[in-house]
Design a protein around this nucleic acid. Structure first.
Length: 415
RNA sequence: GCGACCAUAGCUCAGUUGGUUAGAGCGCCGGUUUGUGGUACCGGAGGUCGCGGGUUCGAGCCCCGUUGGUCGCCCCA
């Protein structure tokens, strides 16, 4: 290391909102993904891979008129050909594009699942990053309420298998069909206009841009007005009512607990019928762990044929943060402390044999020989093997669970 | 885009109303105990106190700016 400070090379900073993971958290992350991959097979969801980059139009068109999101929160750039490219901020639009451009209509109804990195240009906070990762499940080309129900049962089982269902609640609402939704929206605008003077400043702008969003406002000033606003129920067509009933009946039959949240809404117009969020109060302001809904209008908005679809996505980091501390067992089977360098060759034979027998093993053979036993003892493992010389003879002392030490003893004995 | 809080050793943090040479724990390196066993003892390396200005006889501490982080708001596809 140079002491010459002027010669020091400045280390580039990581991009804001990106994260590096080492050890425990990376293992938790992988555990979430592995569990998802296992459970999605149980439900017959096909693995799908779609690009991280898409033409900007894929997302701009799917997100429609919510200019805030499109203009300020997407990672977009021009490639060398002058085409506007965007790092995917969500899975759904890219999957819908793939569905159209690959002619996957032939497979409808198509159940697919994927996971990977997504990018949104936002201010990072707890459970919210610029590069983040999601699990994703979609059913394309099905207008059946059974698809919605199955998707939710899948999500419920995933959370249960991750051991985080406790403290996570499925909240559910319907946005109705287009007719229901339009009637409800008009009634809401009327209600909010009547209370215009009591709304927060933010909600006044929502009233113009996205009135449904006043319903889930966090501002205490808005709550009485939002809470007294009409529910969609009175405006549901009988078809929409039947659809919602069929979804909830499916959940009840499968034993999935749910709560109606009549204030749960989606900002985009292509959402229809089912909207849901699995929420928790254990992640600060970012309480949504898994969310989705039915988006019957999306594929058409991308220039495809009218295609009903429903899906959800879940933040892998958020799920990983919720995992219990003891879910991941990082302990090795054994650690070898080489207490005498003349026994190094023997120790290397032992560790090769251990690993060859499927036992995860680490070796400590550097630094002061006297300290190696202590050092090895600090590495989490089920057994500790000390190798040294005593009375001119090689010796190996094994400590740990009796079953494991017997197995190790047998491996070493034949060397 | 807005707000609050924070920034001292590789990590987690102390650091008094501004006052000598900025500390601890963990980690790292070395030494002591010749030991079937050890939460032990001793020592060492490692710091432009995020950066730049200012106030002051004197700034890790006070003021301004700046960069970065955390949390929240907006937004949430």
């Amino acid at each position: 290391m140079s002491k010459d400070k002027s010669a020091k090379i400045p280390t580039p900073q990581p991009v804001r909102g990106t994260q590096d993971m080492l050890g425990d958290f990376a293992d938790r992350f992988a555990h979430v993904v592995e569990t998802f991959e296992r459970v999605r097979r149980l439900y017959g969801y096909k693995r799908i891979e779609v690009p991280v980059i898409e033409p900007t139009a894929v997302f701009a068109r799917s997100l429609g008129e919510t200019t805030d999101v499109v203009s300020k929160e997407m990672y977009s750039f021009e490639d060398r050909g002058g085409e506007s490219i965007t790092l995917r901020p969500e899975f759904t639009a890219g999957i819908a594009r793939a569905y159209i451009t690959n002619g996957w209509q032939q497979f409808a109804p198509l159940k697919v699942a994927t996971h990977g990195p997504l990018f949104r240009y936002e201010r990072p906070q707890k459970g919210r990053y610029r590069q983040f990762h999601q699990l994703d499940a979609e059913v394309l080309g099905s207008d059946s309420a059974l698809a919605d129900a199955e998707l939710l049962v899948f999500a419920d089982q995933l959370l249960k298998e991750l051991g985080i269902a406790e403290g996570v609640t499925l909240t559910l609402n319907t946005l109705g069909d287009a007719a229901s939704r339009d009637a409800w929206r008009a009634a809401l605008v009327e209600h909010f206009e009547a209370h215009r003077g009591d709304l927060s400043e933010d909600s006044l702008t929502r009233l113009d841009k996205n009135p449904l969003r006043i319903l889930d406002s966090k501002d205490a000033k808005d709550r009485p007005i939002a809470d007294s606003a009409p529910d969609i129920d009175a405006f549901l067509t009988s078809e929409a009512r039947d659809f919602f009933d069929a979804v909830t009946a499916g959940l009840d039959a499968a034993g999935v607990a749910w709560e109606r949240n009549a204030r749960l809404v989606r900002g985009l117009d292509y959402y229809r019928h089912t909207a849901f969020e699995f929420v928790t109060d254990r992640l600060g302001a970012q309480g949504t762990v898994l969310a989705g809904g039915r988006y019957d209008g999306l594929i058409e908005a991308l220039g495809g044929p009218p295609t009903p679809a429903v899906g959800w996505a879940a933040g892998i980091e958020r799920l990983a943060m919720l995992l219990a501390d003891d879910v991941i067992d990082n302990r090795l089977d054994a650690v070898i402390a080489v207490e005498d360098d003349s026994q190094l060759a023997f120790a290397l034979k032992v560790i090769a044999a251990m690993r060859g027998n499927g036992l995860a093993t680490e070796i400590v053979a550097t630094g002061s020989p006297r300290k190696r036993f202590d050092k090895a003892g600090k590495i989490p493992a089920h057994a500790l093997i000390a190798i040294g010389t005593r009375n001119g003879e090689t010796y190996a002392n094994i400590r740990g669970d009796s079953e494991l030490t017997t197995k190790i003893d047998a491996i070493i004995r034949v060397l």
